[in-house]
Design a protein around this nucleic acid. Structure first.
Lengths: 204, 204
DNA sequence: CGTTTAAGGTACTCGCCGTACCCTAAATCG
DNA sequence: CGATTTAGGGTACGGCGAGTACCTTAAACG
């Protein structure tokens, strides 16, 4: 029974400081996010879980949202562009990945954070580094390969065009809500919009 | 000094009931939304402003969000499809309208409500009646005219395709935040994505 | 006129953010 | 190695807002 319920190793350093403490807080915040989402991320719970108190948190982050954003950034998933051999396959795969993500608890957390940021550019920018900008690169990658194969027009190699499918799916989430979009929606986005657009031909 | 600070006409009916009271509450909620946004919509303030108390509110709406959604529905703006003579002009006009709306306080309110709903389909559905579904019709209208003029392929007359531009702009708001999108973004959406898509030709 | 229904008035619990103090351990420096 | 500075720990508190409980009182209805 040497547990000290502080989250730090039993009998370890009696008092952590600086980076060690900061990491402990962030880990606690991450755990709390995963367990209860952003709504359940309370400063008191994070403090308790990290075996410290709110002082230490407020000395590092100005408020709950900042802590939430910082914690979320530790959950970043790097997306590796698929390579199925066809643009259609790659696009479907990327969309399905995104769909799984946004439909998962992590997606809910991201949405709550976006909401809490309420348009504050500084927070949104930090969130975009994970979800938005990072997500654009794979689309350019698969499109680049498709252009090389002659499956897409070179003019489509443009961030706005390349990421259209992702934007549409994200919009679907915002407007229709939390459950993951049915696969038909994904197929429709790819076949009715994305492929015709990048190919430069009429929708089927 | 006959004002009774209840929001009801001086010396009028000493106690409102039913529909009269309900309307008074909704009006108060609407005013509060316009004045302070959804964040500032507190049950106490609405009750005070309506000259009643929280009981009367909770007897009608289960919680703050439900009241907020109900109040928002009173702010509906009906969109009349423009008719500039060209699809490009119509699309730009519709997008600029939407952009103005989402950049206005009303748009912020809508975003906050969407956020607070957090994916609950029932609330989202009620919000969509105003913002989403209602907004789809004008796009089909202008596209229908464009098809008749030969400016667009008939296959584009499909809800998902017709509303692509709106979805992209809405996504822009979600991802980039509160300030209205610059006009270049709108032009880009129309010229690089929307027109090429519905025309069935390659992006310029 | 009496009964039922709903509004008004309060007061309260609870949760949670953010802050203020004061005490104490760890780092740092002469 | 001891003194000083720095930062963490403990705790209590103010403030606000959601939602609830309960009782009183006016309006509607027969």
């Amino acid at each position: 029974m040497t547990a000290d319920s502080t989250g730090r190793p039993g009998g370890g350093p009696a008092r952590r400081r600086g980076a060690a403490l900061e990491e402990a807080i962030l880990r606690a915040a991450v755990d709390e996010l995963l367990e209860s989402g952003y709504a359940g991320l309370t400063m008191d719970k994070v403090a308790t879980r990290a075996g410290t108190n709110k002082n230490a948190i407020y000395r590092r982050w100005p408020n709950r949202l900042a802590l939430g954003v910082a914690a979320y950034r530790h959950l970043a998933t790097t997306i590796t562009p698929p390579d199925t051999g066809s643009l259609r396959g790659d696009a479907l795969e990327l969309l399905r990945q995104a769909n799984r993500y946004w439909g998962s608890p992590l997606g809910a957390i991201l949405r709550d954070l976006l909401a809490a940021a309420g348009g504050a550019p500084e927070f949104l920018a930090r969130l975009r580094e994970q979800s938005g900008d990072a997500a654009a690169a794979p689309w350019l990658t698969i499109l680049g390969r498709a252009v090389a194969r002659g499956e897409a027009a070179p003019e489509a190699l443009h961030p706005r065009v390349a990421t259209v499918a992702m934007a549409l799916l994200r919009d679907e989430f915002v407007v229709r809500g939390v459950p993951a979009a049915p696969d038909e929606v994904i197929v429709e986005i790819v076949d009715e919009v994305y492929l015709p657009l990048v190919r430069g031909r009429a929708p089927s």
